[in-house]
Simulated assay, not measured.
Amino acid sequence: MVPLALFSFKVGVELGQLMFIAVVLVAIHLVQRVYELPRQAVVASAYVIGTTAAFWSIERLDSMFMERAWGDPKGTMNPSSDPTHTKALTRGECSHRCLSQRGQAEFG
């Protein structure tokens, strides 16, 4: 039952993304019929999209290597298992995933 629910969820997410892209493409087409977009706007939007994609890719790679460095392939990163990690958490010098766990540890 769980695999079917997971599959349905993933299909729904993908369909939602495709619908969003379709709406954006229709909106762009309508704007271009009324107003001609300058070439600089098209180039600038491509750079913004590329920069965002690069940022997300680097962020994912960083979190992947952080998990390997801590020896935690499942990504739970238990701060209580390593005293140096606990010190880094108290100084706020850890990744965003660890900071959310610090908040859980401090506030219950």
Rank of each mutant, 00 (worst) to 15 (best):
Q104I: 11
M66L: 03
R60A: 01
S100G: 08
A22C: 05
A41P: 00
P79I: 06
A105Q: 14
L61M: 01
L6S: 10
R97V: 13
V34A: 02
M64E: 03
L99D: 11
V26F: 07
F55D: 08
A22G: 05
P3H: 10
L89K: 03
F65Q: 06
V23F: 05
G50I: 09
M19D: 11
S81G: 04
G92F: 01
H29D: 07
G16Q: 11
Q101K: 15
Q17W: 13
W70V: 00
R102V: 12
G108A: 11
E67T: 00
L61K: 02
D62T: 02
V31Y: 08
G12R: 11
E67C: 03
V34P: 00
P3C: 11
L30Y: 09
R39W: 13
V11M: 13
L37G: 05
F55G: 04
N78G: 00
A5K: 07
H29A: 13
H96R: 12
E36I: 06
V2K: 15
F7N: 14
G50E: 01
T86C: 08
G108M: 07
V34I: 05
R97G: 14
C98D: 15
L99S: 15
W70K: 02
T52R: 11
S95T: 15
S57M: 04
V26N: 06
G50T: 08
F65V: 03
A5N: 10
A69V: 03
G75Q: 00
